Computed example of a mutant assay.
Amino acid sequence: MQIHFVILISRQGKVRLTKWYSPYSQRERSKVLRELSGQILPRTPKLCNFVEWRGLKVVYKRYASLYFCFCIDLDDNELETLSIIHHYVETLDRYFGSVCELDLIFNFHKAYYILDEILLAGHMQETSKRTTLRLIAAQEDLVEVAKEQSNSISNIIAQATK
């Protein structure tokens, strides 16, 4: 199963996260975002979560105030895609502790890290939430070590230039 792109859209139509696994120019990306938000946002909750669009299929699921949209090929499995969406949301939920839109706005880089651990080049990479969260924690530890090293180097330079 190939995922072409992932888009997170708020109910107001604001794009909160995009990840492109197929080549699209910036103009095409803007057009895709406009078209899909115009198609998905007005749909009622009673309609199915699949939309055929430009020879592809968009599978989406609304969680709270966000729509998680994944674009796949027409012959790919929609239910598998819904399970990937749910897996991503559950992982975000465990990481942030009841994730909300503001978590994604202010910590978008962490949402990208988690998505990158789950999906690789548009294919499912990691199915274990525990492993994903462990890898994210290890990555955060590396960032902290790098910050500490940067601070100590800055202190050494400051003392040397006095």
Rank of each mutant, 00 (worst) to 15 (best):
Q2V: 03
H4N: 00
H4I: 05
V6Q: 10
I7S: 12
L8D: 02
I9D: 04
S10W: 12
S10N: 01
R11M: 13
Q12N: 15
G13I: 00
K14R: 07
V15G: 03
V15Q: 06
R16T: 06
Y21S: 00
S22T: 10
S22W: 02
S25Q: 03
Q26D: 13
Q26T: 03
R29A: 13
R29G: 00
R29N: 05
S30E: 14
V32W: 01
E35F: 07
L36S: 05
L36N: 10
L36R: 01
S37F: 07
G38Y: 02
I40P: 14
L41H: 05
R43L: 14
T44Y: 10
L47I: 07
F50A: 15
V51W: 12
V51H: 15
E52M: 03
E52L: 10
E52R: 01
R54V: 11
R54A: 10
G55E: 02
G55R: 00
V58D: 10
V59R: 08
Y60V: 04
Y60I: 03
Y60M: 07
R62V: 08
Y63P: 00
L66R: 03
Y67A: 11
Y67E: 07
F68H: 14
F68S: 14
C71A: 12
C71I: 01
D75N: 15
D76G: 03
D76K: 08
E78C: 00
E78A: 06
L79Q: 12
T81S: 15
L82Q: 08
L82D: 10
I84T: 00
I85F: 12
H86I: 14
H87W: 12
H87C: 13
H87Q: 08
Y88G: 04
V89Y: 01
V89P: 01
V89Q: 01
V89I: 15
T91C: 05
D93T: 08
D93I: 06
R94V: 05
R94E: 13
Y95S: 00
F96H: 06
S98W: 04
S98P: 00
V99L: 13
V99P: 06
V99M: 15
V99C: 13
C100M: 09
D103P: 07
L104H: 01
N107Y: 09
N107T: 11
H109R: 10
H109A: 07
K110V: 14
D116N: 14
E117N: 02
E117P: 03
L119G: 05
A121I: 06
G122Y: 02
H123G: 01
H123D: 02
E126Q: 15
E126M: 11
E126D: 12
T127S: 12
S128C: 05
S128E: 09
S128D: 07
K129H: 09
R130I: 10
T131A: 07
T132N: 02
L133F: 02
R134V: 11
R134A: 13
I136R: 12
I136A: 13
A137N: 03
A138H: 11
E140S: 09
D141C: 07
L142Q: 09
L142F: 06
V143A: 11
V143T: 05
E144W: 07
V145P: 09
V145F: 12
V145Q: 08
K147F: 07
E148K: 11
E148Q: 12
S150D: 11
S150M: 11
N151Y: 10
S152W: 13
I153D: 04
S154W: 03
I157S: 04
A158P: 02
Q159E: 12
Q159H: 10
T161V: 02
